[in-house]
C-alpha cells in the first residue's frame, strides 16, 4: 500500500499537465486563498469593530455559531442549484464552492478578531485614552497590535479548515486536489486517493507554517515572550480579561508561540461564550 502510494507520487506522469499535481495544487491554493481573503475582508473589520465598541457581540456570536452549524455539503449543493443557472462555465461551480469556504472561514476569523481586541489589557486601553489617543489611534496603535496573536490564531484555524474542505469543490465538478479523491474513487485507484489526501494534509501544514512565519514577523516580541533577555518580572498583561478566542483550537497550529499558547490557556479561564 505504502509502496503503491510512493510509486504513484513519484510517477512523473502525475506531475504534468492540467490534471497533474502542480496544477491541482495551484487550483487548491487559489480557491483557499481567495476564500480566506474575502472572509478576512469581511470578518476582520467586523471583529475589530465589535471588540472596540463592545457592541453587536451577541449578534455576531450567534451568527458565527449558526454559520458553523451549516453543513458545507448541503450549502454547496443548494448554492450550485441556485447560482448555477445564473452563471456560466466554471463560475457556475466555482462561486458556490467559494461561498461555502467563505462561510466556513468567517466564524473563526471573526471570533479571533473580537476576542483579540476584547482581551487587550484594560489598563493599557485606559492609559491610551488617558494620554489623549483618539478612538482610531487607540484601535490602530494599541488594540490591533495587541490583538494580533489571536487574530492570527483565528486566521490559521480558518485556513486549516478551508484547505481541508476545499476538496469538496471537486464534487461539483471543478478542480483542486479533491479531484484526485473523486476521480480516484470513480476508478477505484486507491494510491491516487491516498496521495490526494496526503497532499491536502501537507498543503494545510505548509499554509499553517507560512502563516506562522508571517505571524512571527508581524507580532511584537513583547507579546510573544520571544525576547532575548529575560527579566525576573511577572507578565505585564494579566490575561484574565481575555475571552475565548474561538472554539476551534487551531487543529494544526503546530508552531504557535509559547505565549500564544499561554493566552489560549488563559482564555479558557473565562467561560467561553460562543454558541450556536
Amino acid at each position: 500500500m505504502i509502496n503503491d502510494v510512493a510509486s504513484w507520487l513519484l510517477d512523473p506522469a502525475h506531475w504534468t499537465g492540467p490534471d497533474g499535481v502542480p496544477a491541482r495544487t495551484w487550483e487548491h491554493i487559489w480557491y483557499s486563498g481567495v476564500s480566506l481573503l474575502i472572509a478576512s475582508l469581511i470578518a476582520v473589520p467586523a471583529g475589530l469593530l465589535i471588540g472596540h465598541t463592545g457592541r453587536g457581540r451577541v449578534v455576531a456570536v450567534n451568527l458565527a455559531g449558526a454559520a458553523r452549524a451549516v453543513p458545507s455539503l448541503g450549502l454547496l449543493f443548494i448554492m450550485v442549484l441556485f447560482l448555477g443557472p445564473r452563471l456560466s462555465g466554471d463560475a457556475a461551480s466555482l462561486w458556490p464552492s467559494l461561498i461555502v469556504l467563505i462561510v466556513l472561514a468567517i466564524p473563526p476569523i471573526l471570533s479571533g478578531a473580537y476576542a483579540g481586541v476584547e482581551g487587550v489589557d484594560p489598563a493599557a486601553r485606559d492609559a491610551a485614552r488617558g494620554m489623549g489617543m483618539t478612538g482610531w489611534e487607540v484601535l490602530s496603535r494599541v488594540e490591533v497590535p495587541c490583538a494580533l496573536p489571536l487574530i492570527f490564531s483565528g486566521l490559521r484555524s480558518a485556513a486549516l479548515q478551508v484547505v481541508a474542505t476545499a476538496t469538496i469543490a471537486a464534487i461539483v465538478g471543478i478542480g483542486g486536489l479533491g479531484r484526485l479523491l473523486i476521480d480516484g474513487q470513480a476508478i477505484r485507484d486507491f494510491p491516487q486517493m491516498v496521495s490526494g489526501a496526503l497532499l491536502v494534509a501537507v498543503l494545510a501544514l505548509l499554509v499553517d507554517l507560512a502563516l506562522a512565519g508571517v505571524q512571527r514577523y508581524a507580532v511584537s516580541p513583547g507579546l510573544t515572550g520571544r525576547t532575548t533577555t529575560r527579566g525576573g518580572g511577572r507578565a505585564a498583561t494579566d490575561a484574565d480579561g481575555t475571552t475565548d478566542a474561538d472554539g476551534i483550537p487551531a487543529p494544526g497550529a503546530v508552531f504557535a508561540g509559547e505565549k500564544e499558547l499561554a493566552v489560549r490557556r488563559e482564555a479558557g479561564k473565562t467561560e467561553p461564550r460562543h454558541n450556536s
Binding site: 486549516l160 484547505v163 481541508a164 474542505t165 476538496t167 469538496i168 464534487i171 479533491g178 479523491l181 473523486i182 486517493m193 491516498v194 490526494g196 489526501a197 491536502v200 494534509a201 494545510a204 501544514l205 483550537p249 487551531a250 487543529p251 494544526g252 497550529a253 503546530v254
Partner: peptide, 12 residues
C-alpha cells in the same frame, strides 16, 4: 492530533 483534522473527510 490536530493534524488529523486536516485530512479531508471524503478521503477518510
Amino acid at each position: 492530533f490536530g493534524l488529523l483534522y486536516t485530512i479531508p473527510s471524503l478521503a477518510l
